[in-house]
Amino acid sequence: MGFYFTKDGMNAVLKRLMDEYLVYAPIRMIGGGAFSDTNSVRYGQISKISDIIFNQKSEYSFKEILLPLSQTLFFFTEDQVKEAEAPKKGAIIFLRSCDLHAVKRLDEIYLRNGFEDYYYKRLRENVKFILLGCQNPFENCFCVDMQTNTIDTYDASIEQAGDGYVMDNHCNAWESLLSSHCLNQQDVQPSHVTETGVHVKIPDGLSIDAANSKMWDEYDDRCINCGRCNFVCPTCTCFTMQDIFYTDNGKVGERRRVAASCMVDGYTDVAGGGSYRKKNGQRMRFRVLHKVYDYKERFGYHMCVGCGRCDDICPEYISFSHCINKLESVVKEVGDNNA
């Protein structure tokens, strides 16, 4: 069922939902950019509908709500372990179509890849998703080519319409709340992008041989292995574990799970001092092929959702989509070498 809300009506709905949920959306962090006097659009908790930034892409994705960058899993003493508390409330996340497609990837890795991750699951079970319709693509978006521009598995959708908001609702539990605060009911179809400025073509003949291309060497010097592309990516799921012993009492501590990046030093370090991907070009090769080749081999669809955040944030202006488009010639190059 679709609804039209005035701003006040929408805020009344949010207020009610906040009894039960923490509500996250892209918000403007004043002074939150890396450079002085710059802001940043990132995910944070909102208290009213006007907190949401509808007309900009968030620099970092919703991912950090389901997979906190740094999460304490449990506390330990010499003979006891205490699990860290889960949030008391569930969460509502406002996100775009590409990001909701990314949720499917996160679920694939944390719920269906051989085992269920307890900590992910206990958050994920209590999350509702409200789709932010996209009237226009942003810079570097290529969702249409990744087929992530439309989706219907949302709990509700929202878009600005004049001074108010239109919403399509799929969540039965919200139906009476929404109908009691709306101005009127109407048919609502969330907007979606049908054309983007950036296009990608993943070649059909792509194989693991692409790893042998000379193309990756270009990134040895260009890339600074900072890992921003991983940290902003809604589908990067890697983590590492840290056992902390408190400094005042080294016999107690906690175990944390923190986000890891395949671009950052240390990712491939192994016991005995080995390190498998020392060159930045090889790290780039691993990341790119994981997003548009390896993952698909295992799960049947591409990992990359085409949000373009990695391109938006790279301080060295390395474009992931541009790299994908070089794969066509890579296929030819490694084909010629094998012939």
């Binding site: 906190p68 960058l69 740094s70 900072c226 890992g227 940290f231 840290q242 923190v258 986000a259 890891a260 990046s261 950052v264 030093d265 240390g266």
Partner: peptide, 10 residues
């Protein structure tokens, strides 16, 4: 913001 730090060392 300690909660956003992943100890990348940068």
């Amino acid at each position: 913001n300690i909660d956003r730090c992943v100890n990348c060392g940068a």
